[in-house]
Amino acid sequence: MLGVDHVDVDYDGVPAVVDVSLDLPDGLVLAVLGPSGSGKSTLLRAIAGLEPVRSGRVTWDGADLAGTPTHKRGFALMFQDGQLFQHLTVARNVAYPLRLRRARDTATRVAELLELVGLSGYGDRLPATLSGGERQRVALARSLAVEPRLLLLDEPLSALDAGLRERLAGDLSRILRAAGTTALMVTHDHEEAFAVADRIAVMRDGRLVQHGDIDAVWRAPVDAATALFLGYASVLEGGAAARVLAAAGLPAAPGSAVAVRRSALALAERGPLAATVVSARATPEQVRLVVDVVGAGALDAVAPLDHPAAPGQEVHLVVDRTRLAVLPGAAREDLSLD
């Protein structure tokens, strides 16, 4: 089990990771999610032993790793751009960690790994002849060849284009579970995190702001910025929040904020919210609306494709309470501090 215990990391004298603590039980996949500059990659490099930890401990099964250099930690690190050795063939790249350990029968193992990542028969190619997605698959196979205690993935899919990223995220999830690997993945893309991870840790400005099972975090983001980063469309406060909560049949505490997904408001004939359509745009799945809700201002909403709504039209909306998250409320905390 990986343990990170009150870890601080400085980068050129500037704190990059501040007081981060988390645990990762064996066999689980943790996504560390944060915007660029949040310190998530620095945390990953500190766990790999590539950045010195200023204070706090990184442990494995309780043993402090401070004195263990990178190559003895048994943590394989996969970079954003793979970092394959350009002068070695695909097979020799994958076999590299096996050769280091003088393993027997490397050819069979390499073939197995290449099959696992869907690249059977690519063994004799050079990395320069592969596409970006194939290179990442080779890098993954090479990292898995270590049979790492922990696999560290640094934005493994960010360098790829959108369609490929989605497909590879599914493959990555399947491969990690097939191999039973404990993994820590750093990413800025919440879709990627949802597709691959069991657990999620959200970082901002070097601090861990939230950490837990993926659906728990997703259902109850800790504050407005986290909610927006996790893909909520907007965060409502004050009267607007109260109005939406009331329409959803939920109790409204004074000063509470509510995070709303785009699809939380839907067109319905006898819905409790009265609104005027501001704009409408058809997408393959649904019609995306911007509506002016009486007493709450401009909000996103959706309509089914067979119910086109024109700008200026008066409509009614229902609120889906499973697509809302009531935030603990930054405003109240501020008041209590005073």
């Binding site: 790999a48 003895k72 690190l77 970079f79 050795f85």
Partner: peptide, 12 residues
């Protein structure tokens, strides 16, 4: 990062 990749694969 090439050297770091090698180190994370177990190379001294």
């Amino acid at each position: 990062r090439q050297r770091q990749a090698a180190a994370s694969l177990g190379a001294g």
